[in-house]
């Protein structure tokens, strides 16, 4: 498993606006962009725009770009609500890479460990009165992205344990 941040330049952190940077990490990777934003819902617009730019650059169809935006929105919201227990000035890093024509999006936070297996699956067929929306965000992430992987590991640079969510959207052939 990769060491977080190990293959990229640590960006300067700005809580107000976030920071975007580019890095060259190898011939198979055409582009690698990151943004660091605070764990606040007002930043959802910014992170959705950020991933949309990368998805478009990657050549994804408009419907796939929207799917990536929705998955990232749900993941970012989950981090704020569950890893950080609500809005705060803690940080969330989002990185987009194009790998072999596919788009890889990673989200890193250093909040509470997140175990997706503990989230109950939503009942999509329940009657109205029994219908709950909890768990739909995670369900969307799995449905909208082609590969989804959650891990919790030591971030060598920050010296603490962080959640790493890695998602891949394939470019339609």
């Amino acid at each position: 498993m990769v060491d977080l941040f190990s293959d990229s330049v640590q960006p300067e952190i700005s809580q107000e606006t976030g920071t975007e940077f580019g890095a060259f990490t190898g011939s198979s990777v055409r582009s690698n962009r990151s943004i660091i934003l605070t764990a606040q819902f007002e930043n959802l617009d910014r992170v959705r725009e950020f991933v949309a730019e990368s998805a478009e650059e990657c050549g994804l169809e408009p419907a796939a770009v929207y799917a990536v935006q929705l998955a990232v929105d749900e993941a970012y919201t989950n981090i704020i609500e569950h890893a950080y227990g609500g809005e705060s000035l803690e940080q969330i890093e989002c990185t987009c890479r194009m790998v072999g024509g596919d788009l890889e999006v990673t989200l890193i936070d250093c909040g509470k460990p997140f175990d997706p297996s503990l989230v109950p699956e939503p009942n999509l067929k329940a009657e109205l009165e029994e219908r709950e929306v909890g768990g739909i965000g995670l369900y969307f992430i799995y449905q909208l992205m082609d590969e989804v992987q959650f891990s919790f590991m030591k971030n060598l640079e920050l010296g603490k344990n962080c959640n790493l969510l890695r998602m891949i959207k394939h470019k339609e052939k």
């Binding site: 109205l128 219908r131 929306v133």
Partner: peptide
Amino acid sequence: FMSSAGLRVLISTQKTCK
């Protein structure tokens, strides 16, 4: 754009209305 946060509002309003 609408995320599951919007869905939550729709379902809760539909429950109240019906």
